[in-house]
Design a protein around this nucleic acid. Structure first.
Length: 423
RNA sequence: GGUGAGGUGGGUGAGUGGCCGAUACCAGUAGUUUGCUAAACUGCCGAACGGGUCAAACUGUUCCGCGGGUUCGAAUCCCGCCCUCACCGCCA
């Protein structure tokens, strides 16, 4: 959520930013500014009446204490006479505040100046590429055949016990998954990210805090009996750990990493994209979350990008890093880098990580703040990124490292996996 | 699931209709004292939204789990909801 101060200070900055994000209703900006003026005007009136009523009530108390009943009754009558009016103004104020909030939460975050213009994924900008594409022979298999051949994942069994998009990892498949999670967490904690293991369900307030509610309600699984939501990403519980808190400036940055499963309804996606491990309803992910000083968030973003890049390098994948264009960015992001890994058997790029700076967009809604040297409370900046999403890493690993003798396990995983081959 | 107790500022915890945005203690912070540390003492120390100001000073309103209600006046009384704790039952 954008801050109201920004509307008063720099309207054009907002309008330009919304344009870059291809936002369709820029007139909302004017509406918010006008509501802000009305609101402040009404608030002055409201405060004045409330102050009068407060002092009248106080006087009544004093008069009654002195036994001057008649005078007290007289003031009572005066206050009663104003009651209608005070109620009306208070209601008006509340209505304006609600209206303003409703408009405010419709506006996406503003893109950073380095974000390219564009509407579709084709207009994303490739920042850099790395790694080597494996040379597979003609008999290369897609991962959904490899998982069957080596008995690593049973998709049919998942269909039976739950439904499509809920694969069952078996034997070495399960162990490889666990190895990846452990490796990612160890890699992150070694870089100073504190490990947390949060709940996989959150309440309404948390879902609202990170922006899943009210707009993206349909994308989450909802346990209606208890009104809990299954988390679509660890970002939700981990960011909310600091909801409504004020930290000391010297405690920033706060760096956390968490492994969680992620649950997504993915309503409406079918077809080739969902084959095998490409798109699931439940998948594992190791996430990074940071809260930083506003002056340091872009530095932190570059640091996270480098961190994830080195992780991909350590696994031996060919990858590319994209800076998303305004139209392809998420609602809440100011700058996003997507990481894609080349899936050599499917012959396509798969997104395995997305690293974003949200600036104060999330922290404003979540009220994640710090106290600066002058003792003033300010919004921190928040960032997050995946390191990494497991299924597509698994898919690429199986496909890219397949040999006639079996699948070669990357060096860095061997101590976790306990073997250098799957065969 | 049953029964009971309770939700107050960063923490502990007082407050059952007006003098309460809230006693006290702890933590924090600034200072005094001090060879250093510690101790002691003194001051400051919640948030949001406004007015005001170049910026301050100053100042208004709101907030005692959340939402309603009663009243001139609510942390305090009434109703609904949420949550926490204890005990019992069940159980990984």
């Amino acid at each position: 959520m954008l801050t109201l101060q920004l509307f008063r200070q720099n309207k054009d900055l907002i309008l330009d930013g919304l344009k870059k994000k291809n936002f369709k209703e820029p007139e909302i900006v004017e509406a918010i500014i006008s509501l802000d003026e009305q609101r402040r005007h009404i608030q002055v009136q409201n405060d004045k009446i409330a102050a009068e009523n407060n002092s009248a009530a106080k006087n009544i108390g004093i008069l009654i204490g002195q036994g001057k009943k008649e005078e007290a009754e007289q003031i009572k009558a005066e206050v009663a006479g104003r009651k209608e009016e005070s109620k009306e103004i208070a209601n008006k104020l509340a209505a304006l505040e609600n209206e303003q909030m409703e408009l405010l939460i419709k506006l996406p975050n503003l893109p950073h100046s380095s974000v390219p213009f564009g509407k579709t994924p084709e207009e994303n900008e490739t920042v850099r590429t790395g790694g080597v594409r494996p040379n597979l022979n003609a008999k290369k298999l897609p991962h959904w055949e490899l998982t069957t051949q080596y008995n690593l994942i049973d998709f049919e069994l998942g269909n039976k016990i739950t439904g499509s998009g809920f694969p069952v990892y078996i034997g070495k498949g399960a162990k490889l998954q666990r190895s990846l999670i452990s490796y990612f967490l160890d890699y992150n904690t070694a870089a100073g990210y504190g490990e947390v293991y949060p709940p996989f369900m959150v309440n309404e307030a948390s879902a609202y805090g990170t922006g899943q509610l009210p707009d993206k309600e349909g994308q989450m699984y909802h346990a209606t009996e208890d009104n809990f939501y299954l988390i679509p990403t660890a970002e939700v519980p981990v960011t909310n750990l600091y909801r409504d808190t004020i930290t000391a400036e010297q405690d920033l940055p706060i760096k956390m990493t968490a492994y969680t499963p992620c649950f997504r309804r993915e309503a409406g996606s079918y077809g080739k994209d969902v084959r095998g491990l490409n798109r699931l309803h439940q998948f594992d992910k190791v996430e990074l979350v940071q809260f930083t000083h506003p002056d340091k968030s872009y530095e932190a973003l570059e640091g996270m990008v480098e961190h994830v890049e080195k992780l991909l390098q350590s696994l031996g994948f060919e990858y590319r890093i994209l800076r998303l264009c305004g139209g392809d960015m998420s609602f809440t992001s100011a700058l996003t880098y997507d990481f894609e890994v080349y899936s050599a058997a499917q012959e396509r790029w798969l997104e395995v990580s997305s690293v974003s700076n949200f600036e104060s967009f999330q922290t404003n809604r979540c009220k994640i703040r710090y106290k600066n040297a002058e003792g003033k409370t300010q919004l921190a900046h928040s960032l997050n990124g995946s390191s990494l999403a497991l299924p597509r890493i698994m898919a690429c690993l199986l496909e890219n490292f397949q040999t006639p003798e079996g699948i070669v396990v990357p060096e860095v995983l061997r101590s976790y996996f306990g073997n250098d081959m799957i065969n």
